[in-house]
Simulated scan of single mutants.
Amino acid sequence: MGKESAPRRVVIAAYDQVQILDVACPSGAFEIANSHGAAPPYRVELATVSGEGARSSAGIVLAGARRLAAVTGPLDTLMVVGGAGARAAVVDEPLLTQIRRLAARSRRVASVCTGTFVLAAAGLLDGRRVTTHWGYGELLAAAFPAVTVDPAPLYLRDGDVYTSAGVTSALDLTLALVEADHGPTLAREVARELVTYLHRPADQAQISMFLAAPSPGNGVVRDLLGYIAGHLDADLSPPALAARAGLTARHLTRLFATHVGTTPARAVRAVRTEAAAYLVRGSELPLAAVARRCGFGTAESLRKAFLDHYGVTGDTLRRMTDMPRPAAGAPGQTPGA
Rank of each mutant, 00 (worst) to 15 (best):
Glu4Ala: 12
Ala6Gly: 03
Val10His: 01
Ala14Asp: 07
Gln17Leu: 09
Asp22Thr: 06
Ser27Val: 07
Gly28Lys: 02
Ala29Arg: 06
Ile32Val: 13
Ala33Cys: 07
Ala33Leu: 06
Arg43Cys: 06
Thr48Ala: 08
Val49Met: 03
Glu52Cys: 03
Ala63Lys: 12
Arg66Met: 06
Pro74Asn: 08
Gly83Thr: 07
Glu93Val: 11
Thr97Arg: 15
Ala103Glu: 02
Ala103Pro: 03
Ala103Ile: 04
Arg107Ala: 14
Ala110Trp: 09
Cys113Leu: 02
Thr116Cys: 00
Leu125Pro: 02
Asp126Arg: 15
Arg128Phe: 04
Thr131Lys: 09
His133Pro: 01
Gly135Phe: 05
Leu139Phe: 05
Ala143Tyr: 01
Ala146Thr: 15
Asp150Trp: 02
Pro151Ile: 03
Tyr162Ile: 08
Thr163Met: 04
Ser169Tyr: 02
Ser169Asp: 04
Ala170Trp: 00
Leu173Asn: 09
Ala176Phe: 05
Leu177Val: 12
Leu177Pro: 00
His182Met: 07
Arg188His: 11
Val190Met: 02
Leu194Gln: 12
Val195Arg: 14
Thr196Cys: 13
Gln206Ser: 13
Ile207Ala: 13
Ser208Arg: 13
Ala212His: 14
Gly217Ile: 12
Gly217Val: 09
Gly219Ser: 13
Ser237Cys: 08
His251Asp: 14
Leu252Tyr: 09
Leu255Cys: 03
Leu255His: 03
Ala257Asn: 09
Val260Cys: 12
Val260Trp: 07
Gly261Val: 05
Gly261Leu: 05
Gly261Lys: 04
Pro264Lys: 09
Ala265Asn: 07
Val268Met: 09
Ala291Asp: 03
Ser301Thr: 12
Ser301Pro: 02
Leu302Asp: 00
Lys304Ser: 14
Ala305Leu: 04
His309Ser: 15
Tyr310Pro: 05
Thr313Asp: 15
Gly314Pro: 06
Asp315Thr: 10
Asp315Leu: 09
Met323Cys: 10
Pro324Cys: 03
Arg325Asn: 01
Ala337Gly: 14
